[in-house]
Design a protein around this nucleic acid. Structure first.
Lengths: 344, 344
DNA sequence: TTGTAGGCGTTATCAA
DNA sequence: TTGATAACGCCTACAA
């Protein structure tokens, strides 16, 4: 066996492999990385052997500079410790893995300015695409972001947003309105008549749609929305607002709808810490169906969003050449658990 | 204002900026990316202006090929939807952001073969370092992995492992043994006398250490370990094993210790689904203190591991030049909640 | 089918 | 301080 190449200082390069195999750089490139195979079997084997022996791994950066685009997909989330984003990221990662893509992750911490900076930085990677999962407010302060995204698109990068978004960028639709309406209707049918809604700030699309949908469904079923309180999309926001609501007094049998499970879980904790009971006393419902909602007792009534699938689709929205913009929205499903027992 | 440069097709390059500013490539590079500043203020301004106008972003790939290493840290986790890894990743991301590094994430799905493949693929990015958070078994089947890691280290990459690991690679120590012993001792003091331990497979260090530590502390306090059942590190494993244990019959007042919170939460669900009660009837304790454990009722008794901090430290273990190998282990703390009420 | 050579966007060396 | 210019590792017409 050829021993000509000493254990190279630094990673083995394509050069090394070619030399070791006694072929040209081009040939080595073709068998190891190039797509269409047009290399004699004997050469092919030699190159493979050399590559294995040297532990060669293509330098992705070099590949990227040469090709002009990197085999990378960037994912922007508000908070990766939040199970909502975790499940989402899981789907993205699975899809990327299937396609040999690398996922880069960035955390916005729900700060719009930060988000703009991150997009700008991520752009430097020349990723194939950018998945925006951090829920954002509408047009207003999104101006800076819009510019960055445009710049990215202009260079051939693909932007995918979760939920529905204005503009030309691709998106994976989630029919928050319909889902929330179904939830509201079902809860009205269950006998609930008064509800308090805990939402995020006005202008956050996801929140707005869910509030509107829920209101429509609930009032349509004969219920009344007592109040819509604004906070954020976090557990702590839910806890805080929940505590406030309880302090102002709340009738038994009232329902509190949190615009996301995370918020709803915060509310549940607030209820307990206030010495009240979740369920028969004060009912709670959420949205998303994160896995935690299944393990708490009583179980959290919610609308199931297939988050993993959502992430997976987002990844494909980035990559697929023949992506159909008229995607059917993901199937949503109302799931009634112990946090909203029937009142009839 | 100069209009010489038409809105370039493709992203603006350093070349474009230099031309627009009327300086050389080298100068432009120095003001925009280079570290030590030795550029006349007038030039500096011109370049900045040109860069801003063109929306220039350094091509990280090109930079990486030129420099030989990318401003990237790769993170390997078993499952990003698992809150344990989510919180961990959160800390890693924060640290990376502070240092202007990009985090690339890969999911092992707890498959050793897959892990090896991923490390190999990740190596292609020539990242600054690799953080191994996926809990692994000992030496045995880790051989292939070891090779890949060695290859990576040999090229100047830094490998950091969570928990304690043999070999020369850096690690952020977590004193699982001590923490578990403290938990066992405290629970014995609370009056528990019989316990069943639900662990992962033999050979998984983290699990082994926790089992050994708990056993030591619990028996030292006068308790007896009835049984150690083996499964995995997931919620579903906990549920399944929990169901099995209950089916075989379990005295009231027995304690079940799951080697991680996720497992313990699965056990709690199994207990409820079997019609038994968590707490006074059957007590449960876990390890890690993931956030979910605070929101379920009764709250889960556990050992608090500062996961976010753990991730943050891991990131610094990758980057810091003057990293002190003799890191003090992270402070662990026993947290007693409602899942293990006092029995005296 | 194989090899040669030029180019991708940056960095870094070395004169000027 | 500034500016040519040679790397960096790989891809890809184009030529052989």
């Amino acid at each position: 066996m050829s021993q000509s190449t000493p254990p190279a200082r630094g990673a083995a390069t394509l050069h090394d492999v070619a030399r070791e195999a006694g072929v040209s750089l081009a040939t080595a490139s073709r068998v190891l990385n190039g797509s269409t195979r047009k290399v004699a079997e004997s050469y092919r084997e030699k190159v493979q052997a050399a590559a294995d022996m040297l532990g060669y791994t293509a330098n992705l950066s070099a590949q990227a500079t040469a090709r002009g685009t990197a085999a990378i997909v960037a994912l922007l989330v508000a908070d990766i410790a939040d199970p909502y984003f975790g499940q989402l990221a899981s789907g993205v990662a699975r899809g990327a893995d299937e396609l040999g893509l690398v996922v880069t992750i960035a955390i916005t911490e729900r700060d719009p300015q930060r988000e703009v900076r991150l997009v700008r930085a991520l752009r430097g990677q020349r990723p194939r695409g950018l998945i925006l999962a951090a829920s954002r407010t509408d047009e207003n302060d999104a101006a800076g972001l819009r510019d960055e995204l445009d710049a990215f698109s202009a260079t051939g990068g693909r932007v995918v947003a979760l939920g529905r978004v204005a503009g030309d960028i691709r998106s994976v639709p989630v029919d928050n309105h319909v889902g929330a309406a179904a939830l509201g209707a079902d809860l009205a049918t269950l006998g609930y008549r008064r509800a308090v809604v805990v939402a995020a700030a006005v202008g956050i699309r996801t929140s707005d749609d869910r509030v509107a949908g829920f209101t429509e469904g609930f009032t349509g079923g004969g219920g009344v929305i007592d109040e819509v309180v604004r906070g954020g999309f976090t557990r702590d926001a839910g806890y805080e607002i929940g505590t406030g609501i309880l302090a102002r007094g709340l009738d038994e049998g009232t329902l509190i709808f949190g615009v996301s499970d995370v918020v709803a879980i915060g509310i549940m904790s607030a209820i307990r810490d206030a010495g009240r009971q979740v369920g028969g006393d004060i009912a709670v419902a959420g949205f998303d169906d994160i896995s935690t909602g299944r393990d708490i007792r009583p179980g959290l009534t919610t609308v199931r969003v297939p988050l993993e699938e959502l992430g997976y689709r987002a990844l494909h929205a980035v990559v697929d050449e023949d992506w159909d913009a008229a995607q059917p929205p993901l199937p949503l499903e109302v799931i009634v658990r112990g946090s909203t027992p029937p009142r009839i």
